[in-house]
Amino acid sequence: MTLHLIKLCVGAESIADLEEWIALRMRMSGEQIHTTRMMPKNREAILDGGSLYWVIKGQLSCRQRILDLRARRDEEGISRCDILLEPRVVPVDPRPRGPFQGWRYLSAADAPPDLSGLGAPDGELPLELQQQLRAIGLV
């Protein structure tokens, strides 16, 4: 059964900000890797189609498919987990999410649906406005 991760996207103001950061990383290294302290114990379930869901400005906003989880040690000898991500960002139906540290598991049943086609958010609209427009059925 597929399992996802959820993480705060610290410093990003919007999905567009995240996409700019990804584009820069791809130009620099050819991969999009997010490093975290702990290696998930449910590796197989995550690599079975799991995604990293990003919380931006208090909203669960988008996801990236997880391609690999790589264990490594940093220059100080501390263990780390490099999460290799597909560079494509998929907007999801935004949901409020409070702050937390590190990452958390997110079951497939609890994951918000992707936004696609006519309901896809305009990257220029604030997340709060996008959510309000969806709530009243305009997008």
Results as ranks from 00 to 15, higher is better:
3 L>P: 08
3 L>M: 13
4 H>E: 02
5 L>M: 12
6 I>H: 01
7 K>H: 12
8 L>Y: 05
9 C>T: 05
9 C>R: 02
11 G>P: 10
13 E>K: 11
13 E>I: 10
15 I>M: 11
17 D>E: 11
21 W>K: 04
21 W>Q: 06
22 I>M: 02
23 A>D: 13
23 A>K: 12
24 L>M: 05
26 M>R: 06
26 M>E: 07
27 R>G: 09
28 M>N: 15
28 M>V: 14
29 S>I: 07
31 E>M: 09
31 E>L: 12
32 Q>I: 06
32 Q>F: 13
32 Q>D: 12
32 Q>H: 13
36 T>F: 04
36 T>E: 13
37 R>V: 10
39 M>T: 03
42 N>W: 08
43 R>F: 08
46 I>V: 08
46 I>H: 03
46 I>A: 03
47 L>R: 09
47 L>E: 11
47 L>M: 12
49 G>S: 10
51 S>K: 07
51 S>E: 05
53 Y>T: 07
53 Y>M: 07
54 W>P: 06
56 I>V: 13
58 G>T: 07
59 Q>K: 11
59 Q>I: 14
60 L>K: 02
60 L>T: 00
60 L>E: 01
61 S>E: 06
65 R>Y: 08
66 I>L: 00
66 I>Q: 00
68 D>Y: 00
68 D>R: 02
70 R>D: 14
70 R>T: 15
72 R>W: 05
72 R>N: 05
76 E>G: 08
78 I>L: 13
79 S>C: 02
81 C>N: 07
81 C>D: 02
84 L>C: 01
84 L>M: 04
84 L>P: 00
85 L>A: 00
86 E>L: 06
87 P>I: 06
87 P>Y: 04
89 V>H: 00
90 V>F: 13
90 V>R: 14
91 P>I: 01
92 V>A: 09
93 D>I: 14
93 D>C: 14
97 R>D: 06
98 G>N: 04
100 F>E: 07
100 F>N: 06
103 W>Y: 15
106 L>W: 08
107 S>D: 07
108 A>P: 01
109 A>H: 03
109 A>P: 00
109 A>I: 03
109 A>E: 09
110 D>F: 06
112 P>A: 02
112 P>E: 00
114 D>F: 10
114 D>S: 10
115 L>T: 05
116 S>R: 03
117 G>Y: 00
118 L>A: 08
118 L>M: 07
120 A>C: 11
120 A>V: 14
121 P>H: 14
122 D>E: 11
123 G>P: 09
126 P>H: 05
126 P>N: 04
127 L>Y: 12
131 Q>L: 13
131 Q>N: 11
133 L>R: 15
135 A>D: 15
136 I>E: 15
136 I>C: 15
138 L>G: 15
